[in-house]
């Protein structure tokens, strides 16, 4: 459902991405790994329309989305979370989800006041899934780091996306939490039928969730395959561990 061909991104002279190509099928979980600065977030930003002048082709279900505005891309069914959580200051958890759902409403409906109604069932179900239902009417900003992360994910899912992009959702988690997250990601795929792109540093999560993994290094794709395949790849080892003595 997602086709990427020869995606490149330059910031002035600096080449952040070079000739990235890969596919993503419906309901697939794809992992993207790489050292810091390898271009993972840049890749996501290029796909979601945030910044720079990327070149190449990015097709979502046949529609060209490269270079489109971020809200247009979001409305086409792409949702994402951010590495540095971007919570809306001053809004409750419930309101975060309502905003994300706004894209599904007609302008007429949007002009009507916000009464509690049937949409709330969907919102509540999502909050329940992430175990943050009890925070529903609280200021999202005041929650713990982990809960804010869950709000971000709930917000992303609230728009019923076809493609969900998670940018380091496991950052700062301990082993237990990572396990929970990993199974949660798999459950998201089952329950909400979204394709997922997962950027992570935590290999246990990658291994537990992803059928296929792409490795980036200095803006280029250096390997693609299952976890075992890329773990055995010489290029990958070199990128992560430095030059091995021959």
């Amino acid at each position: 459902m997602l086709e990427i061909r020869n995606l490149s991104q330059y910031y002035g002279e600096f080449c952040a991405l070079k000739d990235i190509s890969f596919d993503l099928g419906e309901n697939e979980i794809l992992g993207i790994i790489g050292q810091n600065g390898a271009g993972k977030t840049t890749l996501i930003n290029s796909i979601t329309g945030l910044g720079g002048r990327p070149s190449g082709t990015v097709r979502l279900d046949g529609t060209d989305i490269l270079g489109k505005r971020p809200d247009t891309i979001a409305r086409l069914g792409v949702a994402r979370t951010f590495q540095n959580l971007r919570i809306f200051r001053g809004m409750t958890v419930r309101e975060h989800l309502l905003v994300a759902q706004n894209r599904k409403l007609s302008p007429g409906r949007k002009l009507l006041p916000n009464f509690r109604n049937t949409e709330d069932a969907g919102v509540d179900a999502l909050l329940e899934f992430f175990d943050i239902l009890r925070f529903r009417d609280d200021d999202a900003e005041g929650l713990s780091y982990g809960d804010r992360r869950r709000v971000e994910m709930a917000r992303a899912l609230a728009g019923s996306p076809k493609l969900l992009i998670l940018d380091e959702p496991g950052a700062g988690m301990n082993e237990q939490e990572s396990e929970v997250l990993a199974s949660q990601i798999r459950e998201i795929r089952e329950r909400f039928h979204t394709a997922i792109i997962l950027i992570e540093h935590d290999m246990s999560i990658i291994r537990a969730c992803c059928e296929r993994i792409i490795v980036l290094d200095h803006g280029q794709k250096i390997a693609e395959g299952s976890f075992e395949q890329i773990a055995a790849d010489r290029e990958v080892q070199r990128a992560y561990l430095g030059e091995e003595d021959a």
Partner: peptide, 15 residues
């Protein structure tokens, strides 16, 4: 409100 709070995140949410 979302736009005022964080316009990029709002855009990513479809606003």
């Amino acid at each position: 409100e979302a736009v005022a709070a964080d316009s990029e995140a709002a855009a990513a949410a479809g606003v």
